[in-house]
Amino acid sequence: MIRFFRYSNESYNNLNQNSKHKFAQSHALNIFGKEAIYSFIPKNACSTLRTTIAYANGCIRDKSDFNWIHKNNHTFSATLSELARAKYTFTILRCPFARLVSAYLDKIVSRDTVAWNYIDLHNRKIDIEDITFDFFVRSMSKPNIRDGDIHWRPQIDFLVYEEYDDYFCLENFSKVETVLRDRIGIDIIDVRPLTSHTSYGFNLIDDNDFSNIKPFELLKYKLNRALPHPKNMYNDELIELTKKAYSDDISLYQSKIDRKTLMYS
């Protein structure tokens, strides 16, 4: 079976100069001893999977060392020959609408360093309190903004292969655990309760329109272990803008995952 690369033939230049392929390859991680490749996509349980792989590759001893992964994002990036010879490949997709909300609430509202990088993408002409979710979504119509950070960059950009053996979805994470145990004999090390950038353990509020609420007001909710339900961040106009900005991701998700888990079809 030949594993065709998604972006390799988009340019006849040397493959090392093909930026789209190089980006996707750098996010394709080797699980040594299993001859398996996992393409990691930020905001799609990647901390849990990268911790699992770090353990499987003998670099950490248990989940208490999970912070090791943040300085080793590309330690296990696969070579071209390793990608071509892989016996098993997989990735985890996420509803694009939910992923965009997650990136916003995690990186912008929490005033992560990524938030200041987002301001730099606007040439520092905005203040952090200007970045409502409405503003954030509208900005994704500009390719330099949408592609400017890995946490909201389109998921399809991270996929080095045209096809994977398995496409999982974050919305059905239990399937990931079952299949990986059966296919390659690894157990997931779930670090979601240990990280500060997920909605794990938060109460979801679904009785308000949060699309134009200022980040500081949302941060107050977050400090009280509450977050808006993702659907309450959108209105009809923002839904359509997201569909346009992330059309490839939505098409990919609809073709590989059960449409019932897509927030807006």
Rank of each mutant, 00 (worst) to 15 (best):
S77Q: 02
S8M: 06
E163D: 03
W152M: 07
A36E: 03
V101I: 06
H122A: 15
I41V: 15
I60E: 03
V109N: 09
N232A: 13
L204S: 14
L241K: 07
K231G: 14
N172R: 02
A54F: 01
F23D: 03
N172G: 07
V137T: 07
S26I: 02
F97W: 00
R146N: 12
R138D: 15
I184N: 05
I257Y: 06
I31V: 14
K243C: 05
D166Y: 03
S247A: 11
D147L: 13
Y38D: 12
P215T: 10
D65Q: 07
D65W: 01
T51K: 04
K34V: 06
G33Y: 05
F4T: 14
S81Q: 05
R153H: 02
Q155W: 00
N13A: 14
A98D: 15
L180K: 00
L159E: 03
P230G: 06
K231E: 12
I92P: 07
S8F: 10
I108T: 10
Y221E: 07
A245H: 04
D106V: 08
E217H: 06
Q155A: 08
E162S: 12
S26L: 10
I128H: 10
I250Y: 09
F136G: 06
D127H: 13
C46N: 10
L180C: 03
H197R: 00
L121S: 12
F66V: 03
